[in-house]
């Protein structure tokens, strides 16, 4: 893969204050992720997956070292610039779908575009397309409470994808889903990754997810233990 690097992290450490002391959650991370990757951060609980994902997503900043995302150094961004980066370029998918319960499927997906001040016509086309990607065009008027877990997570994928971000960060997206739905949503994302060249970065310890990944970055105690590209050819 000689694609240009979307994300480059060098000598990154992250410390958290715990009581009087400090806890080193990420230690000297060096990492580069290129456009179009379908990558996973894997590792046991507490290994620092979410912490790293948060920094890439400009929700948090490194304590040491640098994290450059789309050419912007995360630690130097103002609140507003970080929000702008998330709004335009980064989609999030969470373990607990986090759909807004009072809004319909359509409105949940639409929200990111409202923030971008897109017109209704533009929003409608984009939302319907995104719902089409995840196979939920028949549920536009439903409320999240009327959907199954798998459907909720698919709405969340549509919400992340509707603005066609370069990067989608998915933190344990399958943790609350059964096997069938887990496969389904990862397959959906894999398809979008192929079709739209969207870069996906997962944090997961779910084997079902891992088998789809093109690259597995193993974290342990805040350090990269292994970083390997997977050759799917032999599995298929």
């Amino acid at each position: 893969m000689e694609n240009r690097s979307l994300i480059s992290i060098s000598n990154l450490s992250k410390r958290f204050k715990v009581g009087n002391g400090e806890f080193l959650a990420l230690k000297n991370i060096n990492l580069s992720i290129a456009e179009g990757e379908f990558t996973g951060l894997v590792g046991p609980s507490g290994s620092g997956k979410t912490t790293l994902l948060n920094i890439i997503g400009s929700l948090d900043i490194p304590s040491d070292g640098t994290a450059e995302v789309l050419g912007k150094s995360i630690s130097t961004l103002s609140h507003k610039q970080a929000a702008m980066l998330r709004n335009l370029n980064i989609g999030f998918i969470f373990q607990t779908y986090n759909l807004l319960p009072v809004y319909t499927v359509f409105e949940n997906v639409e929200f990111a575009l409202l923030l971008q001040k897109k017109t209704f016509a533009e929003r409608k086309i984009a939302v319907m397309e995104a719902l089409d990607w995840v196979g939920l065009t028949d549920k536009v008027k439903s409320k999240p409470s009327q959907l199954s877990g798998g459907e909720c997570q698919r709405v969340a994928i549509a919400r992340a994808m509707v603005k066609r971000p370069q990067i989608v960060l998915a933190d344990e997206p399958s943790a609350n889903l059964d096997a069938k739905n887990s496969h389904h949503i990862v397959q959906t994302m894999k398809r979008l990754n192929k079709e739209l060249k969207t870069t996906f970065i997962f944090a997961t310890h779910d084997e079902k997810v891992m088998q789809y990944l093109d690259r597995i970055i193993s974290l342990k105690d805040g350090e990269i233990e292994k970083d390997e590209f997977v050759n799917h050819a032999k599995n298929e």
Partner: peptide, 16 residues
């Protein structure tokens, strides 16, 4: 709490 969290993640500014 959750709603505001999502909105922040989706790139809405705190001021907004």
């Amino acid at each position: 709490f959750n709603e505001f969290g999502v909105r922040l993640a989706l790139g809405e500014g705190k001021n907004h």
